[in-house]
Design a protein around this nucleic acid. Structure first.
Lengths: 337, 337
DNA sequence: CTGAAAGCGCTTACAG
DNA sequence: CTGAAAGCGCTTACAG
């Protein structure tokens, strides 16, 4: 990259003059028109761009500490708002003097994120929805800044999780108490860590509670409303529909409910539904039917993340902090207690 | 703020030694334990934090250009994902070597955003959901970096808008063609620029098309599912429900639809609904009933924003660019053509 | 009107 | 084991 020095050399003027011109002070500092022109041309031919970092140093612009949330913009993009609002609210509540910034990344490519491998860009990274590969990258300690893992676990990092296992068990217990013997499951296809863990936990709980899950009743679906709808169609087509359905995400549940409504399968009379809830709680509340969810405590997790971030900034977080938040079951029409 | 120089002075060692210690190279560089300790203590007593900007300059870490999306985390947080995904996809499509970052702000307080008043932090700002005050701030040219206004208009800035006026007219035309004479409206309370403009445009269109809107049938609602639900309750309570309802946001429409379902008011037989659509198109598609929307072309607007950003980075955007994108009417069950 | 010089706060060879 | 010095790319008094 050309520097101001190169521009000065090409234009045949001093560095000071270049600085004045590129900062638009040519008139006010009474730089000769001709000189200013020479500078502009040199800038253009070299493709010169001022170095922001140098400018900031010189201008004593240190800025506030920056907390970066890393979040992938795949099908989980819809969960971002709730978490971001949670982070933001906690920053406000604590009157932290920090900037909160969202960086998007692609699963498995976290290692490409320069904000993580360079210790001077952000002060703290909250990393959400990491894939197995992303976790490997982190575990190999290639991240140069303090990391808070969001809903993932690595011993040597700060982590904030939702107690999905207990919640899956509780969801299964509800079905068991109601005497359901057969349960269907709609789960996200692919190997996202959290969803497969949630589904696995639910299946284990069913086994423990002596409920039967025919493998053909575990439908894998693309994580979208349409995916949920397609899964519901498959279940109906297969026939012999169980009276209980578990979904590992409310997005799938909403898509599925649409089809049950269309096919006049009454929820909850003919089919009771429970879903994990990752969207804002009001979303599932205002569906028709409203959907009973094990609501992931995103807000509490976000608050805790900021609490940890604050202690990192204060240098009081020596040992990794591992926080676990309890989801809340929100009983709605799709499965009343 | 204390500098490395202060730490060195207090610890009674050289700057180099301090640098080595604070960068965790004490062992490897065989710094005497005692020396390292003195440094650590000086760091602690002074509360020294290394200056990231200086580090970056020294480490020749210039980084990529940064495009910052400014978005408020109020009730409009739920619209963020769709726009962000749109921006991200276009960055990818163009293989731009830029960082995309989201900065949250509070309406009316855009002027506090240091990223805008300091020209060295971000290279380009895309500003969404600006309030009138925020626009004043921008118009007063206090922003030091190139700005792209998202769904707002100021002559001297790059702007990308949705043609809400034409769309509102088209929505009204649909009702008019179906012979509706009376129409109800649910609109967002408060003075958000876009929503009030949409509602106003719709009301104007109704007047032009000789449809009657009783002012008492224009219900102001908090922008949330609950707000939409409350508005629907008000409409029902008032009695003499029109057969056509317009909502300025799909969030309101979804909340309202829930109540109509509960009250067994058949959509569309007893009441036809059209809403502006700010959420992803699939959301309203999978509601029960699915909701006919004038879908704001967020994706196209995002693409255009990135196109403008690219030309700014290439210095080929001399004059302000003003782009207008056409919304698309998506016919769903709530109002078939 | 223009330029030489100082200095922002660091890191990194290099010398001892 | 430790320190003096150079220098990252700028901006800003200051001198002329």
């Amino acid at each position: 990259m050309p520097t101001i020095r190169d521009v000065a050399a090409l234009a045949g003027v001093s560095i000071s003059t270049v600085s004045i011109v590129i900062n638009g002070q040519a008139e006010e500092r009474q730089v000769a028109k001709e000189t200013a022109l020479k500078v502009s041309e040199a800038v253009k031919t070299l493709g010169y761009k001022p170095n922001n970092v140098a400018r900031r140093l010189r201008s004593a612009d240190e800025g506030k500490p920056v907390i970066a949330l890393y979040w992938p913009l795949d099908y989980r993009a819809s969960f971002l708002a709730r978490i971001l609002v949670g982070l933001q609210n906690e920053v406000k509540r604590r009157s932290l003097n920090v900037d909160l910034v969202v960086c998007t990344y692609t699963n498995d490519y976290l290692y490409k994120e320069i904000g993580l491998t360079n210790k001077n860009r952000y002060n703290i990274a909250i990393i959400g929805a990491a894939s197995a590969k992303d976790m490997d990258f982190l575990a190999s300690s290639k991240s140069k800044i303090p990391v808070i893992l969001f809903n993932r676990y690595l011993e040597s990092f700060h982590t904030v999780r939702s107690n999905d296992e207990a919640s899956a068990f509780e969801a299964a217990s509800i079905f068991a108490k109601k005497g359901h013997k057969r349960v269907a499951v709609i789960t996200t296809e692919g190997s996202a860590i959290a969803t497969s863990f949630r589904t696995q936990s639910f299946l284990n709980a069913c086994r423990e509670l002596k409920m039967d899950i025919d493998p053909s009743m575990v439908i894998k679906a693309e994580h979208s409303y349409e995916g949920g709808a397609n899964a519901a169609r498959k279940l109906i087509r297969r026939g012999n529909l169980p009276k209980a359905l578990f979904c590992d995400s409310d997005v799938l549940a909403i898509g599925a409910a649409k089809i049950f409504n269309q096919e006049k399968i009454n929820i909850p009379d003919e089919l009771e539904m429970i879903s994990f809830g990752l969207l804002g709680a009001d979303t599932t509340e205002y569906m028709t039917p409203s959907i009973t969810v094990v609501s992931i405590p995103s807000e509490e997790m976000a608050s805790e993340s900021i609490a940890i971030a604050e202690s990192i900034l204060n240098d009081t977080a020596k040992e990794p902090i591992h926080a676990v938040k309890e989801p809340q079951i929100l009983y709605r029409d799709s499965c009343r207690i």
